[in-house]
């Protein structure tokens, strides 16, 4: 429910990593690997963030849109649900859900600005059609909790507001992965604080102990995030390009 994460559809829908890391069969038939799948989701997260900058919506809308997009791909294949259409559509839907509606024609304008490639230049009609399909794929569950609010509250509580900027940036980067589908938001916030405190050499052991949070989970999320940064060093555009190329192959 709205104020209580533990009674919300978001909590009930949390998945195991193995449930998220499923390449659907139409994609598999194209030779799609789990790595490809993750890369494209990351690329589309970036795309959503980019479009959001143009249409000027808050980070919260971006975060909700990315969560929608990632939820869609736990159930649908990229072959059937073209990522370059799903991504802006999720931003469009999230803008309505988060009370800052962006007009479809504005999105279409910036999509065309982004892509010269004819096949990614979608029209309003395409977005509106996909909106219905995304709603259905989300099973009409639209409320998403984000770690931003818990993050600032936790930092206040810990008296470590000087870590705000760093941990906030780390948090933004978690949306390049699927963690929002797997862990409760406050756990993700704690992981960001944990990494930030280690980087800034702040001793937070006592604070975490008093919190009695499950440190195994906090450390797992932190490791995932750090692994992600490691992989980023080698992730070049060409790997994304190769993955997208596979998707474009006719079955």
């Amino acid at each position: 429910m709205a104020a209580n994460f533990w009674a919300s559809s978001h909590y009930k829908q949390l998945l195991e990593q193995e449930e998220v890391d499923v390449v659907h069969s139409p994609d598999k038939e194209k030779g799609f690997t789990l790595e490809d799948f993750k890369l494209i989701k990351m690329q589309m997260s970036n795309y959503i963030a980019k479009l959001a900058q143009y249409v000027k919506v808050r980070q919260r809308v971006v975060a909700t849109a990315i969560t929608y997009m990632r939820r869609v791909y736990t159930r649908k294949s990229m072959t059937e649900y073209e990522p370059h259409l799903v991504a802006p559509t999720c931003l469009y839907l999230a803008s309505k859900a988060e009370e800052s509606t962006v007009q479809a024609r504005l999105l279409v304008f910036y999509i065309k600005k982004q892509y010269n490639d004819e096949k990614y230049r979608y029209e309003i009609k395409d977005i509106l059609e996909m909106e219905m399909k995304v709603l259905e794929a989300l099973n009409y569950y639209l409320v998403v909790y984000h770690p931003y609010r818990p993050l600032s509250q936790l930092l206040q509580d810990a008296g470590m507001t000087e870590l705000t900027q760093l941990s906030w940036g780390l948090l933004n980067d978690t949306y390049k992965m699927d963690v929002i589908l797997i862990y409760p938001p406050y756990m993700i916030a704690l992981a960001c604080i944990y990494i930030a405190s280690v980087l800034k050499e702040k001793d937070t052991t006592a604070w975490f102990e008093e919190l009695r949070a499950d440190m195994n989970v906090v450390k797992n999320i932190s490791m995932e995030l750090l692994d992600f940064y490691d992989s980023q060093k080698v992730t070049a555009d060409e790997r994304i390009g190769a993955a997208l190329h596979k998707l474009a192959l006719k079955p």
Partner: peptide, 13 residues
């Protein structure tokens, strides 16, 4: 119910 009104936090915390 301690969960109410505490967005994003587990009841026991």
């Amino acid at each position: 119910d301690p969960g109410m009104g505490m967005p994003g936090y587990p009841p026991q915390k």
